[in-house]
Computed example of a mutant assay.
Amino acid sequence: MDLSERIKLARKKANLTQSQLAESVGIAQTAISQLESGKTLRSSYLIQIARSCKVNSVWLASGEGEMNLTEDTLTSLSNEIEEIMCGEHEDDAALNNSLRERIENLRNVSRYAPSNSLLTEEIPYLIELDDPLDPSRRVVQVSVSVQLDLSIEILEKQKVLPKNVVAVAISGNSMTPVLQDGSTVVAHLLETQVIDGKMYVIDHGGQIRVKALYRLPGGGIRVRSYNVTEHPDESYSVREMEEAKIRIIGRVFWGASFY
């Protein structure tokens, strides 16, 4: 049974329509349709889909283990995780270590025990808003309401703390075929030094852009889209970056496409 069949089975078991499931998860109905038809083969919303359908997210994502987790298992795991979360920890890394150790113990007990992918952090999205001081301008801000549930396992592999990352929704076709319109990427705010060819989130005068960057002599940058046919390279000196109000927000380390 592939992912599309598991999602459809889980949705029907929960007596949900595609629209109802999409609304519960917070994504478009077309995203569920694409997943169930097999046109989309992955999604970072699998945990939310599993929760909405009340099935085991490990089973939903990989097909391993049982479709349903018993109530006793869910309650026990929830209580243990809550106890760890409420305990004293020096920092986020120490907390993640405690959670990881508990998950590792669960793995030793059962081959179908949950992995770190069941544990998520809420990552805020960057959004564009009208400048309250000048409605003719746009500004980039961190959203207080729109968030992405990102697996702790991803953050641990990158050795980044949740407080230092932001999510960005891709708009347009400039980064196709790698990033489609509607994709989401996550960037590390502490990595703003350009490494040639790496992908970065930038604030370009109030517009959020995700581009591959290259260093130029004198401190400037070359901005490159993957769809070079429609979006040719752009080059900026340090002065031109200041005039265009170009600011490097962070390096992209994770991305997913939902459509």
Rank of each mutant, 00 (worst) to 15 (best):
A187G: 01
R138W: 00
A93N: 00
I195M: 04
I221W: 08
L118V: 03
V178G: 03
N108H: 14
L216A: 12
I221G: 06
E156Y: 01
D92V: 07
K198D: 11
T192P: 02
V160E: 05
L155K: 01
S145G: 01
D130P: 00
G87K: 04
L190I: 01
L148S: 02
M199C: 09
V146K: 15
L148K: 09
R102G: 00
I123S: 06
R209F: 01
L119G: 02
E104P: 00
E101M: 12
S143N: 05
S183F: 02
V144L: 12
L155I: 02
I123W: 08
H89I: 06
D196W: 09
S151W: 12
T176H: 08
H204A: 14
S151R: 10
T184C: 10
I208M: 02
S171Q: 14
G182D: 05
P217W: 12
L213P: 08
V185F: 03
L129S: 00
S151V: 08
L99C: 05
E88L: 03
N173Q: 08
G172C: 07
H188M: 01
D203S: 04
A212R: 15
D196F: 08
V165R: 02
T192H: 03
S174P: 08
M199L: 12
T176S: 10
L150S: 09
V160K: 03
L179M: 13
G218R: 10
S145T: 13
E101Q: 15
T120G: 07
D181E: 11
Y200G: 01
I123K: 09
D130I: 01
